[in-house]
Design a protein around this nucleic acid. Structure first.
Lengths: 108, 108
DNA sequence: ATTTATTATTCCATACAAGGAATATTCAGA
DNA sequence: TCTGAATATTCCTTGTATGGAATAATAAAT
């Protein structure tokens, strides 16, 4: 799992941007307006998201249109697979482990 | 979606710890040894993970046993739901959006 | 009570992220 | 070619995260 994805999403404004782009592509100005952000910081956040591969840009005249790229989120989804299997089984294998420890102890 | 979850996972050592705990609970020393980390930094990382609710601790004599808590990852899983719907549909609604822009343009 | 093992905490130094403000860049249109 | 709109970049400052080293705290054992 790529840590860059988590880094990019570990900032509330950027998470808001991603959630916003879920409804479709938007220009920088539209994003800034809807989230009440300054344009420069919006551009900066978009660059981070872009570096993480979470968004892509297309230029239309003056505007730059950003939209989501599914790949990183699909990778995240795939990563979660391992954990889903455990949820069904039993994530807190604590009791088992404590028994092992107890066993070790009685073996000493 | 809670940003703390992303922050906690946005560090490779911590991500390694989480992946390691997938195989079952471990003590601090075991984690440090398996990941070749110093004990103090291991404790620090575990504290971050604990604050994010990703792990829980149980004390057994000297040792502190850490294991995963499923809730934050389940929340992450739920958050991804919105995106899965889009993947099937078509995440890059870029063409549509460009047509809209084109339409606006011809209306000017 | 003292020692030993295990874990947590503190202090320090460094690196990195983020916002504000200003400026640069790019492109379309007059 | 000049202007204006949209976006990116830079500079600066501040806050925060991280690792290393040392130390503290806790519990078991002798």
């Amino acid at each position: 799992m790529n840590v860059q994805t988590f880094s990019a999403l570990a900032e509330s404004n950027r998470l808001d941007i991603v959630d916003l782009l879920l409804d479709g592509p938007l220009s920088v100005g539209e994003i800034a307006q809807k989230l009440e952000l300054n344009q420069p910081q919006t551009s900066k956040h978009l660059r981070v998201l872009s570096n993480a591969g979470l968004v892509e840009v297309h230029q239309v005249a003056n505007r730059r249109i950003y939209n989501l790229r599914p790949e990183p989120l699909q990778e995240l989804d795939k990563w979660l697979d391992s954990y889903r299997r455990i949820w069904e089984a039993r994530m807190d294998r604590l009791d088992d482990y404590l028994n092992v420890l107890q066993g070790k102890k009685t073996l000493n």
